[in-house]
Simulated scan of single mutants.
Amino acid sequence: MTTKVDGQTPGAEEPGRRRNASGQRKRAGTTRHRVLTPLVQESTPAIIARKLHDAIANGDFPPGSQLTESGLAADLGVSRGPLREAMQRLTAEGLLVSHRNRGLFVVSMEEDDIRDMYVARTAVERAAVEQVIAHGDPAAVDALGEAVEAMREFIDEPNSVGMAEADMRFHQTLVEHAESQRLSRLHETILVETRMCLRAMRGTYSSGKERIDEHQALVDAIAAGDAGRADELMIAHMADGLRRLIGDGPEAGDLAAAGS
């Protein structure tokens, strides 16, 4: 025997009510905005590679220094299998170089290496500027403006670690807002070398204001949608950085062709 409440069987719904509820769920599903991103589990080699990236970027392993499997395996508490895979990744990225019968070494970052890195970086960041302007997203301009404000905190310390980190965060923000996975991967590949160069560049700035104004001018051009002006500023900015590292000789040649 089934008991009815108010003339209806418990749990039963009228067809119209079921359809309405289903429609409400569908509508709710289509309008819901994702707040959290899916979790991504890293493999052991990926974690090791990231730790090595950080150590090289922070100067714990200076340019030209040798890395040994036995020492790293002991430091990290891992077996040599995943360590080798991680080191192979860094070798493929160009951060480690293999010398026959000698072992693996951190890239030397000689003048040719530095110039080559700036050619690649200029190409990536010019493309990023173009994409950010094409998207016309006000959030990108806001994020870049916030990155410049973070640099202003170190206006009286133009050659400090804080300024160098804020400077690089600006460029990371730029590439992130290009919304291109491939540009981001390319930029990440040269990210550690960029950090190494920025550390070397620390003592070359006499004015924090000038350093900040360069970045603000680029933000203003992007905000105005002036692709030509933004491109010119990016080329000049990269050329200035290269000159600060290797001087005004022939190796500091024209970067305008990068990314054209």
Rank of each mutant, 00 (worst) to 15 (best):
R25G: 03
E251A: 12
D254Q: 03
V129N: 02
D137Y: 03
L83M: 09
V119F: 07
Q24L: 14
E153Q: 03
V124H: 04
T30N: 10
L191S: 06
G203S: 04
Y205G: 01
Q131H: 09
A55G: 06
E157M: 04
I47A: 08
K209F: 08
V119L: 11
R244I: 14
I246Y: 00
A21K: 06
A252W: 04
V148A: 00
V175E: 02
G11M: 08
A239V: 08
S260M: 06
E179T: 03
N101E: 11
E165C: 02
I246W: 01
A123S: 11
A12P: 04
A21W: 06
H187I: 02
R115G: 12
G16M: 11
V132I: 10
N58D: 09
H33T: 15
A128T: 12
I235H: 00
S206D: 13
R89K: 04
S79E: 11
R100M: 13
E157P: 07
V192Q: 00
L174M: 01
P82E: 00
L39H: 10
S65E: 14
L39I: 15
H187N: 08
S43L: 14
L83W: 06
N101A: 14
Q216D: 06
G228V: 12
A236W: 05
S43F: 11
L183G: 03
H215T: 12
D112L: 15
S79L: 10
L144F: 01
S70Q: 14
I212G: 01
R152C: 03
G241N: 11
A28L: 11
A134Q: 06
V175A: 00
K51T: 14
L83Q: 06
M1R: 10
A147F: 02
A227S: 08
G241V: 12
R182I: 15
A74F: 12
D248S: 08
I114A: 04
E14G: 05
E193K: 12
D113P: 15
R18W: 04
A150T: 04
A46D: 15
